[in-house]
Amino acid sequence: MSERPPRVLVIAGSDSSGGAGIQADIKTITMLGGYAMTAITAVTAQNTRGVSAVEALSPEMVAAQIDACLNDIGVEAVKIGMLGSADVAEVVADRLEDLGAPIVFDPVMVATSGAALADEGTIEVFEWLMEVATLTTPNVPELAALGGPEAMANRGVAYLAKGGDADGPMIEDRLVRPGADDAVWSDARIVTKHTHGTGCTLSSAIATHLARGLPLEQAITEGRKFVREALKAAPGFGFGNGPLGHQAVR
């Protein structure tokens, strides 16, 4: 009998174009040998050019999806992405507070296209989610919206500051943890406009490796490798910021 795949629950929104959100999460987890489950928080109409419509699911429906997965199949890790509303964010934090499994929180606020995906009320609940999470993965604008490094230090949470949105030929990602030295990853920028779903992909990859039992730093290292290979394998779909090539990574 083959080894059972690590179980990863994704709580996030749906991307109709398949490049980000739940669709990117499922592809990533599957390609890395995990078993993906989902609690969909919102449905979006979007493509590589932008988001044209968003409809959030009710907190009760999101909670029911989470309960259905946890009470039957179980999990080794959870990834949180787009939440859609403050009420949904509160339900998610409440359900996961005492889970006892690694949780990776990608504080999605703005899509690659620039569309807002979280209002002020939802962002306020992020405080609770960051406390619950094993790791929070903000990009440059998200980190700024959360108050920057000083505010994150005051919260005493572990986070990966992603540098892909910063200028320059090199990309630096920095892991900051209370009571520990920073860990830094630096690589040459892969020049491409096909970056839709990079944050979703990275957070799901890290969650899958944590579900497999890897230490946090190693899970980040392996997750970054997967994203970089998927960027190189982007199929070039769409007229805007196209999707990654998840299926081409071996």
Score class of each variant (00 low, 15 high):
residue 113 S to K: 00
residue 239 F to W: 08
residue 242 G to T: 14
residue 1 M to V: 10
residue 171 I to D: 05
residue 29 I to C: 01
residue 71 N to R: 13
residue 102 P to G: 01
residue 88 V to W: 04
residue 219 A to E: 00
residue 205 A to E: 05
residue 2 S to T: 09
residue 185 W to I: 14
residue 113 S to D: 05
residue 85 S to R: 09
residue 157 V to A: 10
residue 239 F to G: 13
residue 233 A to Y: 12
residue 166 A to Y: 06
residue 224 R to L: 03
residue 233 A to P: 03
residue 179 G to E: 05
residue 243 P to L: 09
residue 60 E to Y: 08
residue 193 K to C: 08
residue 246 H to K: 15
residue 165 D to Y: 01
residue 135 L to S: 00
residue 105 F to I: 08
residue 143 L to T: 03
residue 46 Q to F: 09
residue 114 G to H: 05
residue 17 S to R: 13
residue 64 A to L: 06
residue 94 D to G: 04
residue 101 A to S: 01
residue 67 D to G: 02
residue 241 N to E: 14
residue 153 A to E: 10
residue 250 R to D: 12
residue 201 T to F: 07
residue 64 A to S: 05
residue 246 H to C: 12
residue 48 T to A: 10
residue 189 R to F: 06
residue 104 V to L: 14
residue 201 T to I: 11
residue 238 G to C: 15
residue 15 D to R: 14
residue 92 V to W: 02
residue 7 R to N: 03
residue 220 I to D: 00
residue 107 P to S: 13
residue 204 S to E: 06
residue 73 I to R: 04
residue 180 A to W: 03
residue 243 P to G: 06
residue 185 W to C: 05
residue 162 K to A: 06
residue 212 R to N: 08
residue 187 D to Y: 14
residue 179 G to V: 03
residue 116 A to Y: 09
residue 147 G to L: 03
residue 170 M to V: 09
residue 71 N to E: 09
residue 140 V to Y: 09
residue 223 G to L: 12
residue 134 T to L: 06
residue 127 E to Y: 14
residue 47 N to G: 07
residue 13 G to M: 11
residue 134 T to G: 03
residue 195 T to I: 15
residue 62 V to L: 08
residue 95 R to F: 14
residue 240 G to Y: 10
residue 172 E to F: 01
residue 84 G to M: 12
residue 148 G to H: 08
residue 244 L to N: 01
residue 105 F to E: 02
